[in-house]
Design a protein around this nucleic acid. Sequence first.
DNA 1: ACCGTGGTTGATACTCCGTCTCAATAATGC
DNA 2: GCATTATTGAGACGGAGTATCAACCACGGT
Lengths: 149, 149
Amino acid sequence: MVTSEPHTLQEGIEQAGHRLTYPRQAILDLVAQHPDGFTAEEVCAQLPQVGRATVYRTVKLLLDLGLVCKMTGPDGAPRYTLSVAGHHHHTLCVRCGAAADFQRCTVDLILQTLRAETAGVILGHRMEVYVLCPRCLEQEETTSSGSPT
Amino acid sequence: MVTSEPHTLQEGIEQAGHRLTYPRQAILDLVAQHPDGFTAEEVCAQLPQVGRATVYRTVKLLLDLGLVCKMTGPDGAPRYTLSVAGHHHHTLCVRCGAAADFQRCTVDLILQTLRAETAGVILGHRMEVYVLCPRCLEQEETTSSGSPT
DNA sequence: ACCGTGGTTGATACTCCGTCTCAATAATGC
DNA sequence: GCATTATTGAGACGGAGTATCAACCACGGT
Ligand SMILES: [Zn+2]
Ligand SMILES: [Zn+2]
Ligand SMILES: [Zn+2]
Ligand SMILES: [Zn+2]
């Protein structure tokens, strides 16, 4: 079992037969430091030495390799986060964007019902739960009671 | 019960105190003819006499009034469809874009679990089911068995 | 019917996000 | 070290939506 489940982004890239170049390494490092998720533009901003095209390409590569997940904010803004194994979805903080996984996907129940009702074929689904994360919630409360401008 | 539940887009617009102008009327008519859903650009294309800005503004207006729903395709492309009363979601054909409602949203079950687990606050959710609609499914089968190029 | 007010329009410029192009560059195998 | 090939990055490009702003039109008051 040499080339099984990659445990790091680097491994994933190399196992897929892609070169681990400097720009990629930089992006991977940055991404790994943001378990809460990130946007492509955030990466661009923090790595001015790396070209925008390369950032987008690398994110897409990670996406194709299943190493990161693509999420959609309330306004449709795309956001990415490190992927975990297995079927899962995310909660997304509407304020800071922090993402968290949740595995329990009882969507299957809904799909079963749908499958029985529709003559078409179900291919997949998307689900996102929008939250105010504990940290932002706390801030919100502090602000509203503290300094009522 | 004079100004209750609007039954047409026109009524909805007027009840909200907005003028029912010609451009709007044209957009509303077109939208009403596309129960399967539509994109803003489709409307633009079919109504060259109406400015793009107006199309986008009107769609946004309908959205704000809750008369249409905004969906997100697998690739993130926005699409709109006439709204129905009550909490619901949509199935979206990945091929032709046709949208259909489904009311049964057992997402609540998931949310209950999440609520118990998280210290944050759940504000909302998004869910879309991607399908190959009956019509497209049929075509697919016909094509693959009929002309194997 | 006329006028004034304010909502509405639409051409255009602009922003944002992401992709494409293509010559220069870096990694790899020999 | 050299050829081969993947990768890079500056900049052009494209699609989607918004901002601007002068012209316009619907409507209420007279
Ligand atoms: Zn937060
Ligand atoms: Zn699921
Ligand atoms: Zn279809
Ligand atoms: Zn729901």
